[in-house]
Design a binder for these strands. Sequence first.
DNA 1: CCTACCGATCGGTAGG
DNA 2: CCTACCGATCGGTAGG
Lengths: 223, 223
Amino acid sequence: MWVMAERATRTRQRRADGDRTRAAILDAAVRLSTVDGLEGLSIGNLAKDLGMSKGGVYAHFDSKQDLQLATVEAAGVIFRSEVIEPALTADPGVPQLLAFCDGFFDHLERRVFPGGCFFAGAALEMGTHRGPVQEKVAEFHSGFVQLIRDVVRTAVQLRQLPPDEDPAALALELNGTLLAADTSFVMYDDPSVLDLGRRVVRRRLGLAVTRRDETPEESENPQ
Amino acid sequence: MWVMAERATRTRQRRADGDRTRAAILDAAVRLSTVDGLEGLSIGNLAKDLGMSKGGVYAHFDSKQDLQLATVEAAGVIFRSEVIEPALTADPGVPQLLAFCDGFFDHLERRVFPGGCFFAGAALEMGTHRGPVQEKVAEFHSGFVQLIRDVVRTAVQLRQLPPDEDPAALALELNGTLLAADTSFVMYDDPSVLDLGRRVVRRRLGLAVTRRDETPEESENPQ
DNA sequence: CCTACCGATCGGTAGG
DNA sequence: CCTACCGATCGGTAGG
């Protein structure tokens, strides 16, 4: 009896170690791939970063593509927990839209990913290389855009936005502002573009923008 | 006398051949790098694509970085002639802003670069790799953004846009819409997102958006 | 999870 | 503009 228990414990322990190692590999893979890209990520570099051998990495992933797929998955888990889920606790409609965007700017500023938004980079890099990895990135991207569209639709129903507001159009605008801010932030390493992004989003959602040099009233379009 | 003339002709001919080869290399380099990235671009692949040897490529470029710098330069010349310069023939202010954006959407649709906007990809890829290449990409990027800001300022002066319009904010919004459209276009290979982008830009610039299912009057914000 | 190895390709050079 | 080569690294495998 104790033999079986002992063996079960050992198996559980070993699996737990394996899972921890796998998680550590993926954590490093997500980090490195936001800097070097999903293609630029190499098993050799990854192993060196972790202080282990290439064979050790291959014990957890059958191929580079397998590693890339798991890396996209792991990045999605991080993005969901760091950006999407916190924003979903805000009130439905415009407050949630604002929370998505602010959460995005914040995750850049906190450098959740050292090379900027994982999915912005992955989308442009893998968009030209059709295959399972591109499909997984596209799936996440379209899910995020669809989520924004749904919340815009809710905001319209709640009369927080005008009835003719096109959800797809506003989703493109908001997503675009996030992408442009990410690009400038990565390029110039300057957080001031994130403040500009925050102001743009507030104005577009019809919210007051407080700046030192103007009163909220002046924000109204006088035409 | 004829010897010098002969030699000059030969030299000119040889230089012309060399220039033509160099231009052909850069044309292929721009094309390949929008698909594989500026780092993913390899001298071997480039030579194979051109049907020449690696040594032939190294006869024109001292190093990969030298090739990358020339590739960014060549992409800039293409982007200027295909997008920026045609737009500058439009009337100053809002018409020029519209022309920049329409020109950008058109250059995607015409597949001037097979892998989408060269600079969108290059900015995200090289943003995390500081050096001469990143600086050249950043220089072009900031020049484009500055150009948009200047034209917004002109539009405000011409009273085509409200006096409180923030040039930096509108530049971020327009640039963002272009980036979001590029990302979706590359990812899903679907030109319909370009039409969505065109509508978004027109609306943001206060221009009539004609759609089958609504009159321009309905586009006004009823709040 | 390791060492030791495979063929292919990388950026780059020598010499012509 | 070519061939022939360099050391380093790539993704991946074998065997333990």
